[in-house]
């Protein structure tokens, strides 16, 4: 098979050793880039960006709130791709990635909710407003929690992976419908005058820190994903070794 082309990267990554090698190579550059992006983004959001003419200084909350919403959706999109990888392509890394990603997505969704609440208190006068966007994010958070709960409930990793993959895809189909229905429900019930964070008019000087913070979140996502995937791989190997050892002991004893 000398003429055979080198298999595609994602095929080679099906081997845990190959994955670990690539992960180790990528990890530190990613960590450094992530720290740099956070430093630059935080500096920008606190010092260089001006106060908004409507929201005043509270607009600074937007720099951690809006990118968190981006990452919450991005993580779900990634999990849906992993779910397809599990169900259609049977890629052995897909469910490892999905299991590692779920808590990260839930954390970003939680950040989006909490910072939204801290923004809402001074702007709306209440800690929680049944605003269309916040409500949609809340439902996304519930779906994340459901996925994590299902992972925990089924102890066989392979069976759990398939069940979670199906749930993730069903959720992916439903999310646009949920988003649409919540928006639709909101226009029926709420006055349109309520403030929204990061509305249609964002000043240019605010875009740079916003995108840099988004990049910092994204890099952090990848760093955490790699670490958690490596952990999951080790845990699965531990499980296999334990079973083998128990087998061995049983045979020696019996």
């Amino acid at each position: 098979m000398e003429n055979a082309a080198k298999p595609a990267l994602w095929m080679r990554l099906a081997n845990p050793a190959a994955f670990n090698a690539l992960a180790d190579k990528l990890l530190w550059p990613l960590v450094i880039a992530c720290l740099a992006a956070f430093a630059y983004g935080l500096y920008g959001s606190f010092f260089t960006s001006p106060a908004d003419y409507q929201q005043g200084e509270t607009v600074r909350i937007m720099y951690i709130h809006v990118p968190a919403a981006w990452l919450a959706l991005f993580t779900y999109a990634g999990m849906s791709v992993s779910a397809l990888g599990t169900l259609v392509f049977r890629h052995p890394m897909a469910d490892v990635a999905q299991k590692a990603a779920a808590p990260i997505g839930a954390a970003f969704t939680l950040i989006c909710l909490i910072t939204g609440s801290f923004w809402g208190k001074p702007m709306w006068g209440t800690w929680w407003e049944w605003d269309a966007r916040l409500t949609s994010v809340l439902i996304l958070f519930l779906i994340y929690l459901g996925i994590i709960a299902l992972w925990r409930a089924i102890d066989d990793p392979l069976r759990g992976a398939r069940a979670v993959a199906i749930l993730t895809l069903v959720g992916a189909v439903n999310l646009p419908i949920i988003k649409f229905s919540v928006d639709w429900w909101y226009t029926l019930h709420q006055p349109a005058s309520v403030f929204r964070m990061g509305g249609p008019t964002i000043h240019k000087s605010m875009l740079t820190p916003l995108f840099v913070m988004g990049l910092a979140y994204l890099l952090l996502y990848f760093v955490l994903l790699i670490i958690r995937m490596k952990t999951e791989l080790m845990n699965r190997r531990i499980e296999r070794l334990r079973i083998a050892a128990a087998d061995h002991a049983a045979r020696a004893g019996g």
Binding site: G146, A149, L150, V170, N174, I178, S181, V182, L188
Partner: peptide, 20 residues
Amino acid sequence: LLLSVLVLPLSIPTLIFGAT
């Protein structure tokens, strides 16, 4: 209980449209 946690978020659109 887990079943309710999985099912309820997905049934929100139905609830919204039906009650409306």
